[in-house]
Design a protein around this nucleic acid. Sequence first.
DNA 1: TCATTCACG
DNA 2: ACGTACGTGAATGAT
Length: 881
Amino acid sequence: MAKNKLLLVDGNSVAFRAFYALHGSLERFKNPSGLHTNAIYAFNLMFENVMEKEDPTHVLVAFDAGKTTFRNEMYEDYKGGRAKTPGELNEQLPYIRELINGLGISHYELKNYEADDIIGTLANQVDKNKFDVTVLTGDRDLTQLATDSIKVAITKKGVSDTEDYTPEHIADKYDGLEPKQIIDMKGLAGDASDNIPGVNKIGDKTAIKLLNEYGSVETLYQNIDDMKQSKMKENLIHDKDTALLSKKLATINTSAPVDISIDSLKYEGSDLEKLVPFYKEMNFRSFLENLDVNEENHDLEDILFEAVDEPTKEMFTDDMALYVEMLGENYHVEDIVGIAWGNDKKIYVSDSDKIFSNEAFKSWLLDKNKHKRVYNAKSTQVALNRYIALPESLTFDVLVAAYLLDTTDNSGDIAGICAHYDYHDIQPDEAVYGKGAKKGLPEDKETFFSHLARKIKAIQWLTPKLEEELKDKNQMDLYRDMEAPISSILAEMEITGITVDANRLNKMKDEFAQRLNEIEEKIYEQAGERFNINSPKQLGHILFEKMELPVIKKTKTGYSTAVDVLEQLKDQSPIVEDILQYRQIAKIQSTYVEGLLKVILQDGKVHTRYLQTLTQTGRLSSVDPNLQNIPIRLEEGRKIRQAFVPRKQDWVIYSSDYSQIELRVLAHVSKDKHLQEAFNENQDIHASTAMRVFDIDKPEDVTPNIRRQAKAVNFGIVYGISDYGLSQNLGISRKEAKNYIDTYFERYPGVKQYMNDSVAQAKEKGYAETLYNRRRYLENINSSNFNLRSFAERTAINSPIQGSAADILKIAMIELDKQLKEKKLEASMLLQVHDELVFEVPQSELETLDKLVKEIMEKAVQLDVPLITESSWGKTWYDAK
DNA sequence: TCATTCACG
DNA sequence: ACGTACGTGAATGAT
């Protein structure tokens, strides 16, 4: 039989830790009635973490009963001098008890005793044959309880991690000490936090040494006469009474008069009747959301809908919601399994194939005067285009709107967005369709139809809310004039696809396979055995254990074998060079050659999907396949681009990219005189930076190496520079890197000012924003955790730059799409790669297109510095260079 | 499912 | 003193 597990939580101590874990965000954690909630929130998080980790069968939270306990009778000043509990924490303590009730957990306190004693007593009392015990606390005192069946988990700085004290861990940490000797240690060394005095001049280190020799405080004093004369011996003798008292104070009372039965502590899950209203009162939306995932069908209202096979035209009006269901993500190939439409009065659903040839439906879809609101317009367009035709007037997209309002909030389906707006009359797709191998339509058609109907209802409900919020945040223009049009343009680009020459790839595949074979053999020979070169673990074993190469860097799980490490090992053994070679080719082979071959469809093309609502900055991302990371930097990989060809003979691939758009955006937003001057005079920006930062007078004195360093500095600036990052990138010392950065800021004071301002603004508003009101919320910008805060600060610097650049290319794409259509050009826009657009174009249109693209991209927006593009073309994407 | 590695801007 | 460059996606091996 599986063993029970009892979890004992030291309520006061964990509450205290929780309060300070989120202390940096104290003012942001307030519920509508002004109560601070940071400690309650963090307590809940810590609790969830430990419940998941330990999975206990029985749980109790113990609290201290009051200010004085039996220990004060022994020693008046016990816990004296302790700073008063902050008011902001005190006000939360009653609510933490309420939270515990909601979580379905018992709590207990006992007059005259501390939580420690309750925990010690219970931990001691339970039958160790039936129970393992875990104690959760922030207080190291409790580690004295550790045994083979009692583990003491001490909360670490954040909310998620604990340090687990077992007898082995204690021996490790305290140089061989046993758990019960912890109290002897406190007897000798004292404990400042509880105001336990200990012996004068003895600290933890000395105490451990003495205990290793004598075992306990008592035996130490029995043998003290034999101790060599020393100042320490005098102190020990002088403070003997204090030592014995201190030990007593530190000793947890394991026979407190606790009168609760273990059986009553059995954990049977949360009490939702209490917990849900409590979370609502505290404004804990994310916890509420998590509850929903676990409960199926809770409080779903009945929904009315009509299932139809062949709808008639009265069933379609202006201003309805439309939803097209597929069970997989790739709408280029997934079957449509159901369609729903409707408004507040009436909802229709259909899973019949007849709908695809239904005239009423089709004419409604294609009617520009019939406005439809949807969740994911692009998916809807691409899917329906395969079955019927490209739908018109999908005028509101709740997915894109929700993304603009909060980039972090789009968990994949409508229910995710709904939960964020406290609308719960819908289930996550996963709850209805399942996941993984078991994913499929529900047995019961009613369940399926209801789910579709609820999606219509949700879209209807969300639309006015989102519209209003977009207006409030001054983001309606961003939605209407940028994101909505871009959605349709991307749909067309995806549908068009790009032709891939499979023959070319197959030839490359054979060549690479042969070369890989040869390198493999060479590597095995040098290693003296065959192993999986793709396994960092096995490779690490060969390099660092068998061949004993020096270890440069470690990862969480073992030795690092990343490129920068291997580069440094090149001189040590020729095998390293071969491994690098192998890696390079294996990557090209598996990801690009084989990867691309797998996703070529019947039409000889690949159709990527651009994710419009994913990145935190406003960029697009590309999946299935990712066409935004096709190799270019190294010749070997660059050849992959030879497989990307125009769809017709005599056409060419044309490509145009912005030159230094991010630095130009920086010059604009920072208003830095010198940076602007460099761009206005059309200087080589990296050389110009080199001259200013490294005090070079004549352009001809800028060597390629100095220019390379300046280039790295410029990159660093855009990323929100750190001396360490720059030093790593350039392989120079941290001090030198710092020097570069200081000089840069001195020579470009406007940039320095911009960085200070962006961080300050983000701290005040809680978000960073682009030139076109795209927001990125920065949860940790005021965090007390250095790392989290620093990261948020760099993000506050980088996001407006990267995001504004993304905005600008989107604006250019919209204008370009318009002009291509107006001018009835045959050329089509195929790809977007962050600062680059790729087209296929008939030879005859090449000149026109080149002019048009250059004009539109460079004039897309008016900045304080010019925008410059560079274009090229050729028979393949490779030749467009 | 996570961690590592490496491709791009 | 902290431990880092910004934004992505795919393949692989290990768990």
